[in-house]
Amino acid sequence: MTDSDATDAEAEYERWVSEIKQMRADKDEFFTEHSQSPIQPEVRDDFDGLSYFEPKPEFRVPTRVRVYGNPEPIELDVTAGQPIRYLRAYIFEFELRDERQQLAGYQQEGDDTDTIFIPFRDKTTGQQTYHRGRYMETEPDEELTNGDTVTLDFNLAYNPFCAYSETFACPLPPEENWLDVVVPAGERKPPEEIVE
């Protein structure tokens, strides 16, 4: 690698970290000020921001995509109420911590969106991170086909709103999306003082 390549890589890394920090600051502002914040107004004065792991490039992983032409419906249990029907539309295959892994990507049945929903648990769940699991999303620029490569960034993993208030009903990660590795990336457990 030349000095120029190293400088470019360092600049790209700094840009990536800066983008993540800005997203986190924007989310803190939303939680503090927005009328749809999951944090109750009476505890917002105690809110000093969400807790995150430091951004690490190793948890930004390229994945190989398998696409289901006729995705089968699956019902995801929720924290309260009736299960929600999703379509298991994609499988993302990747290596993490020198182990082969895969996660299913879902789209809500009848929902006209390109967003792919990836709820998951890992070995931090219930310890360093929310005990019911976390979410990721990706929205590819174009329609995915078998063998495409998509980057999943676990640094962007976030807690569902039900982590902050029981008034929300949130889908739970199905067992097929329980990773058997530690993923110390993204959002940590919510601070106790802001949980309803």
Rank of each mutant, 00 (worst) to 15 (best):
F120I: 06
N70A: 13
G69R: 07
T115P: 03
R44N: 09
W16T: 07
H34F: 09
Y90G: 00
K123R: 15
I118R: 02
P38T: 07
E109A: 10
M23S: 13
T167D: 14
A169R: 11
F94W: 06
A169H: 10
L152H: 02
E139I: 12
K21N: 14
D111E: 15
G105I: 00
N70M: 12
R121S: 06
S35Y: 14
A25E: 10
F30P: 05
P62I: 11
L144V: 01
D112Q: 12
L179C: 06
A89G: 08
G110P: 02
Q102V: 01
S35M: 13
R66C: 07
P174S: 06
N70S: 14
D46R: 14
N146H: 09
E175R: 11
Y106M: 06
G147N: 10
P71Y: 01
L96K: 07
P83M: 09
I91Q: 14
R132I: 06
F59M: 09
E175K: 12
L179G: 01
D48E: 15
M23D: 13
I194V: 08
P73H: 03
T129F: 02
D114L: 03
L87N: 12
A157D: 02
H34G: 08
R134G: 00
D45F: 06
P119W: 07
G81K: 10
N155D: 03
R100I: 10
F31E: 06
T124Y: 04
I20N: 08
K56S: 13
L179D: 01
D112W: 04
R121K: 13
D45I: 09
D122H: 08
N177T: 05
P173Y: 02
T151L: 08
P83H: 07
Y68E: 09
R24W: 04
E58S: 11
K56W: 04
W178S: 12
P173F: 03
D3Y: 06
R132G: 01
E54S: 11
E42K: 10
L156H: 02
N146C: 03
D77H: 12
Y130I: 02
P160W: 04
I91C: 09
S37R: 10
P62M: 09
D122A: 07
N155H: 01
Q22K: 14
A6K: 15
R64Y: 06
E58A: 12
R121T: 09
D111V: 08
Y90A: 02
E193Q: 04
V78P: 01
K27L: 14
Y68I: 00
I74N: 00
A89T: 13
F168N: 08
L96D: 07
G81W: 04
P119Y: 05
D148A: 00
A169S: 15
V43D: 12
V65E: 00
F117S: 06
I84Y: 02
E19M: 12
A89Q: 08
D148F: 00
Q22R: 14
D111H: 13
